[in-house]
């Protein structure tokens, strides 16, 4: 079941990239791309591939779409926040590394969480040890792990938990 899901996802991913690359579409090119993507997806690959952690139920897919918008909003807001700090004459920063805890168990979930934290300006994932994530924060608002977890991870985690546990 897990490998079937991985093969379907890698077929869709490969074919999607091909379709986007050959943008003004014609049916011959699309069919040739589908054949090659099927062949590649049928090759044997590692069981440990993190693609298998993705859930495909209707609720997970709806959450995936919602997560896209939540992440875009967080990205824009934190970009404006860091832009404000850069332009402020007194440079209001108080950098530090805080420890936050994550409830996510799967490798894909933790990968997505760490990458989301790094992509939003103002926070960078420095290290990950088990369920502890060490985050460099440009303005430490709360040094204690629970408060920092709520501020940095809280918004992303409840969506990622539904998408990939």
């Amino acid at each position: 079941m897990r490998t079937v899901k991985q093969r379907i996802l890698s077929f869709l991913g490969l074919w999607g990239v091909w379709l986007l690359l050959t943008a003004p579409w014609n049916s011959e090119e699309a069919a040739a791309g589908a054949v090659v993507a099927l062949l590649v997806a049928a090759l044997p690959f590692s069981r440990a591939s993190p693609l298998g952690d993705l859930k495909l139920g209707p609720r997970a897919l709806a959450t995936l779409v919602a997560y896209f918008f939540v992440f875009t909003k967080a990205l824009v807001l934190s970009n404006l926040d860091v832009a404000f700090r850069v332009l402020h004459p007194r440079l209001p920063i108080a950098p530090g590394i805080v420890k936050v805890k994550t409830r996510l168990k799967t490798p894909l979930g933790r990968l997505l969480l760490a990458n989301s934290i790094t992509l939003t300006p103002g926070t960078i994932t420095v290290e990950m040890r088990g369920e502890d994530v060490f985050v460099h924060w440009i303005k430490v608002a709360d040094a204690d792990p629970e408060g920092a977890t709520a501020a940095i991870v809280g918004g992303f985690e409840k969506y990622l938990e539904v998408i990939c546990g």
Partner: peptide
């Protein structure tokens, strides 16, 4: 501007993330 103004490597990366993302 952030790369020039920030005091150390970590904070310069924070400013640099803005360029690569948005």
């Amino acid at each position: 501007v952030g790369l020039l103004r920030m005091p150390d490597a970590f904070n310069r990366m924070q400013a640099g993330t803005k360029a690569t993302t948005l």
